[in-house]
Amino acid sequence: MSEEKEEKKELVCIPFIEGENVALAPTNIDHIQLYAKWNNDPRARHYARNMIPHTTEDLKKWFEPRGGLTEHVGFEIWHKKDKVPIGTCGFGRINWIDRNANIYMNIGEPEYWNKNLGTEASHLLIDYGFKELNFFKIYAGVFEPNIRSWSVAEKDGFILEGIEEKAIYVDGKYVGARRYRLFKEDWLNRKAKK
């Protein structure tokens, strides 16, 4: 009990992007136990390709300084009302020449699933990608059985670019990967119409 209290005390949000119900905050090394929990949680890691256990030591490497222009921008998703981090999201494989990046999201706390929080966080992230980082194209790869994720992508206006056949091994069988894309002009036009 006292341990739990201590953990609660450490939870701090340093907002970077403010939304209605969630905020995107920089990842915080003090929350590393939570990140490890999410990365290992059987439900949350199911489609996230975490096939090998992640220790907090592994995750500490995220925080080591790297040279050059970053290829990765990651956020913690902070639930404003409940004052807890509920997952991570960001851009990986950023290509600054071709101006594209892979978007990812992981709501690590299953009790926050199916509440449209992923959709809200994805809107904040996409706006950031196009309006601040000046991306030309954002893409996403989602495995076929991960219906929750690709439904969010389709709701956001991502276009199915194609399906990679038998691209990943999940639950004892090969499944396909859906590839989605979103161009900046399409995102801005869509927002203007709303």
Partner: peptide, 15 residues
């Protein structure tokens, strides 16, 4: 050819 990624790369002045 299983996929075509539209305008995925910038080569010699064009996507």
């Amino acid at each position: 050819r299983e996929l075509t990624y539209m305008k995925q790369a910038y080569v010699k002045g064009n996507y």
